[in-house]
Amino acid sequence: MAAPVHGEVEEITGKYVGVEIEGVTNRVYFEEAGPEDGIPLICQHTAGNHGHEWRHLLADEDITEHYRVIAYDLPFHGKSVPPTSQEWWAEDYMLTEEKFAETIVSIADALELENPVYMGSSIGGNIILQLAHWHPDRFRALIGLECGTYSPGYFLDWFHHPQVNTSEVSAYSCWGLMAPQGPEWARRETMHLYEQGSNGLFRGDLYYYSVDHDYRDKLDEIEPGCPMYVMNGEYDFATDPDDAREVADGIGEMATAIEMKQIGHFPMSENPALFNEYLKPVLDEIRGEDVDVPEVMTPEDVEADLRETTH
C-alpha cells in the first residue's frame, strides 16, 4: 500500500485496446500486472468510477504471482474517453444490462483472454448474474462483490442536477457504504476517485444498478458454467451479506456466498489490505488449490492489522 520510494517504478503497466461495443469502436484503457501466462483476472470498477480502484490488488505480489490482473476503465470512465465517432454529448449516458454485459465480454475478447476470471464490485458485482445467465461458458469463475438480485434507490436525478455539487455528492453519497473500521486514508482515496467522474456517469451507471438489474424472479434461469462467488461486506447497506446468501441460494451449488466482516461496498479500495486477504483463499480455490473458504470472514481470521496498514 506504500507509495514507491523516490525513483522506484511500479510493475503495473497501462495500455489502450480497441473494443467494439454495439457496433461502435471504443478506445479502452487498462492496467495490468502479473505474468503474461498467468490466469487472467479482469476487474470491473464501481459506478461512475474507474479502474484505479484496483491499484492495491494490482500491487499485491501474492496475487500477481499466479494471476495476470487486468483492471480496465469502462468507456466514458477514467482514461477511456467517449468514442469520437458519436455525438455522445447530445444524450444522457445510460448503462443497460445488455450493454454492460456485452462490454465486459468484448473487452475479454479484444484482449484475447482465454478462460478469464471475472471480478467486479457494486454494478460490477451485480453483473455476474447476467454474465452467468447469458455467457455461461466464457469465464473460469465469476466473483461478485456487493452483489444482489435487486438494488433499488440509487438512480437519482440529484446526481446530475445543475444546482448540486455532483462531484462531491456522487462521492459522499457513498461515504456510509464503507465500514468505519477501514483506514481513513483508503476511504478518503475512494472518495477522491469518485470525485473524478464526469457529470452524469454515476447516475447513468446507476440506471443499470437500481433500475435495469432485477433478478428477483429470475435466479432459477441461471445455469452457470463456472463457479460463482458472491462476497458482500457487513457495512454495505445496499446489498448486504443476506443478499449474497439469497443470490447463492437461488443459483444453487455452483454459487458460494461469503460474508466479509468490517468491510463495505468498496472492498478493494476502502480496506485493501483486509480485502486482499479475504480474496486470496477464493483465488487459490479457483486455481485448483485445496483450501478452506469460510462462509464468514473476519479480520481475526486473516490476521490483518486494520489500523497499521502502511500507505
Partner: peptide, 15 residues
C-alpha cells in the same frame, strides 16, 4: 464504532 447500517445518515435513511 457505529454498527452497520446506522453508521451514517444516508446508510441509515436507506434502511
Amino acid at each position: 464504532n457505529p454498527p452497520a447500517h446506522n453508521n451514517e445518515i444516508i446508510a441509515s435513511n436507506y434502511r
